[in-house]
Design a protein around this nucleic acid. Structure first.
Lengths: 137, 137
DNA sequence: ATCGGACCTGTAGTAGCTACAGATTCAAGG
DNA sequence: CCTTGAATCTGTAGCTACTACAGGTCCGAT
């Protein structure tokens, strides 16, 4: 007979490899409560299964998309309590989109200011720099 | 006779008020070495002058424009050592502009992904949410 | 049995501040 | 001169989202 746990239980290294999430980050997510406490081997090593892997992957995707810890916490708690409604998820998402759009706006403004400053600059070997002057006002 | 120090020496509260930089942040800048250690009153309160005020203002403007601590440190050290050349300042600035542009690009991509996800969402009262599904892949 | 790689805990560091607690100082009014 | 309350002091902890150790233990293959 084959191992009962074949393909179903694995250590933190495999979690990390398969999700692309750094080992210390996996432990960190456990510490802050995004990931549940896993079972342990007799020696004390963490043992994970596919469900936990999927959850970690979900967290990773959320981070890539720029959701904050608390946003992820909100999404996960809906998932966990099985009381997701599309409308709720939608509202978390659109709030996040608004954030992103605001950040883009701010950065564009910034880029304009910086470019203007840079354009006025002679790039020369001289100590009078309009950029520095602009920063001192 | 008027006070000798008229308009020239003031406490941290005035620094804060006049620059718009939070008191604790002023102390923080001192701690991390962006601001020099100021003189103290007999009782130990910090005493500032206009030169320091100008420096604080410079730091504030740099932060507003998104320069990082180490970028500010670089700019300030040029100012301090009086070996600014326009070319050096220009290179710090253009590097920063490149950063900003990259951030804008990344955020635009993000916005696209998020908007697509949100568009596919029914906003309904149902527990099947394409956003969550997308995040689980 | 041994050996090296994987894993453990716990702490400190990163940026860029903010927010206290608990003590002291300052400046203005009586 | 003394009191009072605002301002300031130091020092520490918290925030987000991790990363990077140190110094030890465990696991699995030979």
């Amino acid at each position: 007979m084959e191992k009962v746990t074949k393909g179903h239980v694995f250590a933190i290294g495999e979690m990390s490899r398969r999700t692309g999430v750094n080992i210390e980050t996996v432990r960190y997510y456990e510490k802050i409560g995004l990931m549940p406490k896993p079972n342990r081997s007799e020696g004390g090593n963490r043992l994970y299964n596919d469900v936990q892997l999927q959850r970690l992957y979900f967290i990773k995707r959320c981070r890539e998309i720029g959701f904050s810890q608390s946003e992820i916490r909100a999404l996960l708690s809906m998932v966990d309590h099985d009381n997701i409604t599309c409308a709720e998820v939608y509202s978390v998402t659109t709030a996040h989109i608004a954030d992103v759009r605001q950040k883009i706006k701010d950065l564009r403004k910034l880029e304009k200011v910086l470019s203007q400053m840079a354009n006025e600059c002679s790039r020369g070997d001289v100590p009078e720099c309009p950029i520095i002057e602009a920063l001192f006002e």
